[in-house]
Amino acid sequence: MASGVLRTLAALGCGLVFGLGLAISGMMNPAKVIGFLDVAGDWDPTLALVMGGALLVAIPAYRVILKRRRPILSGGFSLPAEEKLEAPLIWGSALFGMGWGLVGFCPGPAVAAIVTVLPAVLGFVAAMIAGMALHAWFSGELTRRKRSSGDTAPNPR
């Protein structure tokens, strides 16, 4: 189980570098994020450099890494297999965009900002987790309904 411990430590280290990056870049500040999203107002494009800079590293790195047979600490790559563009992807992203524009927090910076213990941050993260739980419950309920209607279908009465 040594590789399990190493995987956990690797995740801790990656989270740490990620959190540092968010804090240094200003992504953790909703006022700055809104200034970046506000293209019609006093537009502050500096966060585009953060996103662009991260992509500039990630694109070539992924190219090289994904040519390997497997990652260093794990048996295989866990990549999303789905390739179709379905409605939930679009609608979910639209709802997310609405919330992001409303407050200026997306999930990473919001979680990282918990350390400020500001009531506004804690309230946002609590609501976000409630939203995630609501979705988990909702999709569980849907599959349950589908399954039970499937069970009764061959036996009509």
């Binding site: 979910g92 609405m98 407050v103 997306c106 976000m128 939203g131 739980a133």
Partner: peptide, 11 residues
């Protein structure tokens, strides 16, 4: 906003 971000990102 929190609810929308949580639900939307999972959906």
């Amino acid at each position: 906003g929190g609810l929308l971000v949580g639900f939307g990102t999972r959906m």
